[in-house]
C-alpha cells in the first residue's frame, strides 16, 4: 500500500493539484508543493515539462515552455525534490510525457521516484498495451502506481481493461479536450459521470480537465472520488505568484 491507496480510503472528496515543475521560477518547485500541503490539498501532480505537450491546452503549454526555459530537466527536478519527504507527506505523482522518461531510462526513472518517495506516475502517451507488455513489471518493482486516463469516448470494454490494469485510481478526463479551464459542465458530462459511476469499477475515479473553481469541483465530485485542477491553478501562479496559492485553494472548498 502506498500513500495514494491510503488517501483514497479517507472519507472525503479529494482535491488534487497539477502544477508544472520549475514554474514560475526554476526553484519554486518545493515551495509550491509545501504550500499546497499547508493549504489542505490532498494530492499533487508534479508536471515534468515537455517540449511538445500534445494533450495540453495553451496554459500548460506556456508554463512548460517557460519551465524549460528556466532550466528544468529530469535531473534538476529529482534533485530539487530529493528531500521532499522530510516536509511533505501527501501523495505525490509525477506527470509528464513518455519521451523524457524513456531517455532517462524507464527503470532508472522509476528507481529514482521510489528513492524520493513518489507514489505514482501519469504518462498520458504511454498506452495501456505498451505499458503492460514492456513496463508493468518495473512499475510494480518500485511500488509505483501507474494512472491511466479515460475519456467520454472510451468504450465500456476498454474502461474495464483499464480498471483491471490500474491499482490506485482512474483519471477521468471530463470531456473530449486538451487541458484548459472551461466555465462549466453540460448534460453530456453529467451523463458520462453517471455512466462511469454505474459501472461499479474497482478503482475510484478522479476527474480532471476543465475544473477551475468551487462550482466545477462540486459538480465533478458529485459522483466521483475527487477532482484535479491544473490550468486554473497555473493561471493563478502566473497572475499572483506563490502568494496566490492559499487564496486559490481555499476558494475551491
Amino acid at each position: 500500500m502506498n500513500r495514494i491507496h491510503k488517501k483514497l480510503q479517507e472519507d472525503k472528496k479529494l482535491l488534487s493539484i497539477y502544477f508544472t515543475a520549475g514554474y514560475p521560477e526554476l526553484n519554486d518547485t518545493v515551495t509550491v508543493i509545501e504550500k499546497l500541503q499547508e493549504n489542505g490539498v490532498d494530492m499533487i501532480e508534479i508536471g515534468l515539462p515537455f517540449s511538445d505537450p500534445l494533450a495540453d491546452g495553451p496554459t500548460i503549454q506556456a508554463s512548460s515552455t517557460e519551465a524549460l526555459h528556466n532550466g528544468m530537466t529530469t535531473d534538476v527536478l529529482f534533485n530539487q525534490i530529493k528531500d521532499i519527504r522530510k516536509t511533505v507527506d501527501i501523495p505525490l505523482i509525477v506527470m509528464g510525457y513518455f519521451n523524457p522518461m524513456f531517455q532517462y531510462g524507464v527503470e532508472k526513472f522509476c528507481a529514482k521516484c521510489a528513492e524520493i518517495g513518489i507514489d505514482g506516475i501519469i504518462m498520458p502517451d504511454l498506452p495501456l498495451a505498451e505499458y503492460q507488455e514492456e513496463y508493468k513489471a518495473i512499475f510494480k518493482k518500485y511500488n509505483l502506481s501507474n494512472i491511466f486516463l479515460i475519456t467520454p469516448q472510451t468504450s465500456d470494454e476498454r474502461i474495464r481493461q483499464i480498471d483491471e490494469a490500474s491499482d490506485a485510481f482512474i483519471y477521468m478526463v471530463s470531456s473530449a479536450s486538451t487541458t484548459g479551464a472551461k466555465s462549466g459542465f453540460g448534460n453530456e458530462q453529467e451523463d458520462y459521470f453517471e455512466r462511469i459511476a454505474s459501472m461499479n469499477l474497482k478503482n475510484p475515479q478522479i476527474v480532471g480537465f476543465g475544473i477551475s473553481n468551487s462550482d466545477t469541483f462540486t459538480a465533478a465530485t458529485a459522483k466521483s472520488k475527487g477532482a484535479i485542477i491544473g490550468s486554473a491553478f497555473i493561471k493563478t501562479l502566473t497572475e499572483k505568484g506563490i502568494d496566490g496559492i492559499s487564496h486559490f485553494i481555499r476558494s475551491i472548498r
Binding site: D125, P127, L149, T154, S155, A176
Partner: peptide, 9 residues
C-alpha cells in the same frame, strides 16, 4: 502508437 487515451478511439 504512443498516443494519449483521448486519441485512442
Amino acid at each position: 502508437a504512443f498516443i494519449p487515451e483521448m486519441l485512442y478511439p
